[in-house]
């Protein structure tokens, strides 16, 4: 069976420092997976390895069966990346940013289509023609989601997406992710937010010191059990 996202013995060291130790992980289509862990646990390193921004010391990362190290550009056609702070071109409007990003990915949309993508992603219509310099973090994330949808990404890699969002914005964002997942998009999320991750994820991985120490299935454990287990691991 081919997984949409797969890590096979994926490791990364920076000199003497080990950032990720032999990660084995498989994600299915439409799955929402959260990687929980403190700062420096290796969550962002994992995302960067899937994006091909860094090369693994050993092991392989696959996106839809494509080896990321061997074909970094080809593997990205299935991926969309939403960092903690989506940084857009501040002097361009939301629509212009979306147009630029989707055209770079090879998708050219008409003005109306771009507007629809932005509105579907939750951006207020009156913000579409404003420069993103005045956007809040949540609004920029919505443009990022719109860019992912625009290029028909199969996998969404999110790095701390809900940090700094107010509860309403965070809730809206969760709903958006659920909607995408329902349409078959796989969500891989690195986060500190136990509450949101347990709310929307199918599976949760717990990381510490570069190692995936547990994989929890949300159908087996409820939110409070997962929180309790996570805190136990962190104390250990």
């Amino acid at each position: 069976m081919q997984f949409i996202l797969e890590a096979a013995g994926l490791s990364k060291t920076y000199g003497q420092k080990t950032a990720l130790v032999s990660l084995d992980l498989q994600l299915n289509k439409g799955e929402i997976f959260s990687l929980l862990g403190p700062n420096g646990a290796g969550k962002s390193t994992t995302i960067n390895l899937f994006l091909g921004f860094i090369k693994p010391t050993s092991g392989q990362a696959f996106v839809n069966g494509i080896d990321v190290s061997a074909q970094p550009v080809a593997s990205k056609q299935f991926l969309a990346y939403i960092p903690e702070n989506v940084m857009l071109y501040q002097n361009l409007t939301g629509r212009e940013n979306l147009s630029l990003l989707s055209s770079l990915a090879g998708f050219n949309y008409a003005k109306d289509q771009l507007d629809e993508l932005l509105i579907t992603s939750g951006l207020q219509p009156d913000a579409i023609e404003r420069n993103v310099g005045g956007y809040s973090k949540g609004m920029r994330q919505k443009v990022g989601i719109a860019a992912a949808v625009a290029r028909d990404a199969k996998v969404l890699l999110l790095d701390e997406p809900t940090s700094g969002l107010d509860p309403k914005a965070s809730n809206e964002f969760s709903e958006l992710l659920k909607g995408l997942s329902a349409k078959g998009t796989t969500i891989f999320m690195a986060t500190h937010d136990i509450f949101r991750s347990t709310e929307i994820s199918n599976r949760i991985g717990i990381m510490r010191n570069g190692q995936l120490i547990d994989l929890l299935d949300h159908t087996v454990f409820n939110a409070s059990e997962i929180e309790s287990l996570y805190l136990d691991y962190m104390r250990a």
Partner: peptide, 14 residues
């Protein structure tokens, strides 16, 4: 510095 390089790169271009 603005963090847009990663965004550009993640669009599937080298």
């Amino acid at each position: 510095e603005n963090g847009t390089l990663k965004l550009l790169m993640s669009q599937g271009i080298s």
